[in-house]
């Protein structure tokens, strides 16, 4: 469904993503792995349509990223990005106004499960709560491609479990999830496919189970091997 061909992004001469070639197919959960600054976020933003590639192309269902792909792709950034005036209910209304695939019922369900209160101001949420809100809003869309940038960053264990469960529940044969993280062990058991990035380059990619079998080591160990 998603194809990056030599996708490159340079900022003022500095290369953030360097000739990235990647294909994402439905029915799979992908881990996008690498330390901070390896280009994971820039790559995701290119797919989300927030960053325009300097060179190369990114296509979704054969069409370059644009309005059509934005209908089908859900992106969740690391940082909170909702308007200051909003409370949790307003966030749901906003999504419902702009995304046809958004389910208000699912949002209400997830908000309740995450122990959030609809009248709470987005501005006053703790970082853990803000992370849970972002996940709830993003996964209440029945998007075909779901991009989650560091969904487990700075979150306590309980919230992590809730988020992992919600991610697993959202995966099905008709969609694909791409989850970036530098906390590999959290993702090890939920992924089908691992993509390793380093300094804007793709260093290794493959089926997680096959990689484990071929190399006789877990993705976590492989990660340590690559980046140590």
């Amino acid at each position: 469904m998603l194809e990056c061909k030599d996708a490159t992004k340079k900022y003022m001469g500095k290369v953030a993503v360097d000739r990235m070639n990647l294909t994402v197919e439905k029915g799979r959960i992908y881990a996008l792995l690498g330390p901070n600054g390896s280009g994971k976020t820039t790559l995701m933003k290119m797919v989300a349509g927030l960053v325009k590639p300097t060179e190369g192309v990114v296509t979704y269902n054969k069409i370059p990223i644009g309005i059509e792909s934005k209908r089908k792709v859900a992106y969740m950034s690391t940082e909170p990005f909702y308007y200051n005036y909003m409370n949790i209910a307003d966030v749901g209304k906003y999504y419902a106004d702009f995304f046809e695939d958004f389910s208000t019922e699912k949002y209400a369900q997830l908000i309740e499960r995450m122990n959030l209160r609809t009248q709470d101001k987005v501005k006053s949420l703790s970082s853990g709560m803000a992370a849970k809100l972002k996940i709830a809003a993003t996964l209440s869309r029945k998007a075909e491609l779901i991009l989650l940038d560091e969904p487990l960053n700075g979150i306590d264990i309980i919230a992590r479990e809730q988020i992992i469960t919600t991610i697993v529940e959202s995966a099905n044969d008709e969609n694909a999830l791409v989850v970036s993280s530098h906390l590999v062990d959290e993702l090890e058991k939920i992924i089908d496919y691992a993509v390793f990035m380093k300094e804007g380059n793709l260093v290794m990619q493959g089926d997680a189970e096959e990689m484990r079998a071929e190399r006789g080591m877990s993705i976590v160990e492989l990660y340590k091997r690559i980046y140590a």
């Binding site: 029915g27 799979r28 959960i29 479990e161 992992i164 469960t165 697993v168 529940e169 995966a171 099905n172 058991k189 939920i190 992924i191 089908d192 997680a208």
Partner: peptide, 8 residues
């Protein structure tokens, strides 16, 4: 969901 593992 029970074991928090990949659906595949």
């Amino acid at each position: 969901v029970l074991y928090k593992i990949n659906p595949n």
